[in-house]
Design a protein around this nucleic acid. Structure first.
Lengths: 264, 264
DNA sequence: TCAATAGTGTCTGTAAGACAGTATTAG
DNA sequence: CTAATACTGTCTTACAGACACTATTGA
């Protein structure tokens, strides 16, 4: 490999282009020490509050050999940015995203740290977790809670911070929270998602009223019996094109798959 | 130039990287037909409501020869994305931006239209206009009102639409409007900026109260006599780091120049 | 004087938060 | 029965919008 020779040669050429993805899912800390790469979801560990988890890939070459990095890959001509993000996402997790949005493009020359100059187009995605979802990865993939991240390669720590800031902002005025739960959910489950993302504790009565008056929830008619208390009504998310949301569509007239398109 | 031969050769390589800028300034339609590239600002034409104007560059080669395009250039290694945007901006307008923010990265393969595959990192900028500002450009540069744009190259029309959507959203909860006026301004001037961006008509009394209670304005003590009516107090913008705004800082810990950094 | 904009006062509707109270389940 | 969560009622505060009113200028 002629890496170090190439670096100086390429200073007058354009940088390479990478696409990386911050993948977020709701999970609970697993109490069993067997298989530390597993994350218990709704099943088991009902005492622990759920938090956001993220899959990272261990680097197998320099720089940052052995550190953890965001899933991603190089961009080829003929591939759209979003397709490149989907490819990185699905090859890492085998799970389909419920939401995918471009985050930011990072291109400061100082971020390459001895590698080739690289512009990284970052995306973020949300994955629904149900009682049976297993958040496991392959050989060099591991899920981490966002509250306890390992040493990260390049500026990937900054990228994750920015993604979390964006999620915290958008959960307040969009339907993001519904993308982290299953097709049907109770208002308590939805409230736990909000609490996990914002780090706050919300009044159940006020949260209920706010969600029901938003018009984006629809009662399914069935209930969920969860413990030694009154069962809760199950709801499902129903998209509704409010005038406000129509202003927040994505750029480009082309069709975009799999999300309701909220961008600011 | 071996352009057409290069296209097929490069299909397995990464696309080129361009940086384009949507530059916005407040202006009023000029009634004089002499010099159609001029835009009257606050001086003159007081009957016309101000609107957003944007400078475009005429293309001098294929594809889209003769059409208008966003100012921009190719990205070189060793240059940050923001510096590339500043370079494109200042070489086009000779004016310094009061605000600069990354907009979105466009990379769909279909957007090259016979040119080389190109990923475009779009920025948007705000320029302050005062009574004496002349919004003029060079030989192949012309300012257009955003309400009456010409035929645009590539997907630059989509990029402008998205920038305008972003501005409309952010003017509601940030200090963006103050970046389009001079250092001091009356509440009527500031209201006209909001009205120009949102396309609405705002109640002067309620707008005044909302702005003053936001804490971001400070009375200068001097007044502006404008016409045959009571003179208006002049205010200036004072940055205040509210807890809410602290959540909306930009990514990357590096220093960023010349704006208060509002990003969602 | 009038016309025009600057600026104040006040009412109403909406929505968020605090918090008391009722309903229904398991054990 | 108790403990736990589901769900309802209601009070307070804050703020946006509507709109009547006063203040000050140029002509």
């Amino acid at each position: 490999m002629l890496v170090s020779a190439n670096v100086s040669e390429r200073m007058s050429e354009p940088p390479d282009i990478g696409v990386s993805v911050v993948i977020l899912a709701l999970g609970r800390a697993s109490s069993e020490e067997s298989g530390a790469t597993d994350v218990a979801t709704t099943r088991g560990n009902h005492d622990a509050r759920p938090t956001l988890w993220i899959p990272l890939v261990r680097r197998i070459k320099q720089p940052f050999l052995g550190d953890w990095a965001l899933p991603g890959g190089n961009l080829q001509s003929g591939t759209s940015l979003e397709d490149a993000a989907r490819t990185a996402l699905e090859s890492t997790t085998q799970l389909r995203p419920r939401y995918l949005e471009q985050l930011y493009t990072f291109g400061d020359p100082s971020r390459s740290h001895g590698g080739l100059p690289m512009v990284t187009i970052a995306y973020w995605a949300l994955i629904a977790t149900t009682e049976t979802t297993q958040l496991t990865g392959g050989e060099n993939v591991r899920w981490f809670p966002t509250t306890d991240l390992p040493s990260l390669a390049f500026d990937h720590g900054d990228i994750i911070d920015y993604a979390l800031t964006r999620v915290r902002n958008k959960v307040e005025y969009t339907d993001l929270a519904t993308r982290l739960v299953g097709d049907t959910f109770t208002l308590s489950q939805l409230r736990e998602v909000h609490e996990a993302i914002t780090g706050t504790s919300l009044d159940p009565a006020n949260f209920r009223r706010k969600m029901l008056s938003s018009g984006m929830l629809e009662a399914t008619g069935s209930q969920l019996s969860n413990g030694k208390h009154r069962p809760a009504m199950l709801y499902r998310y129903v998209a509704h094109e409010s005038p406000h949301q129509a202003h927040q569509r994505r750029p480009q007239g082309k069709a975009r798959h799999g999300n309701a398109g909220h961008t600011t």
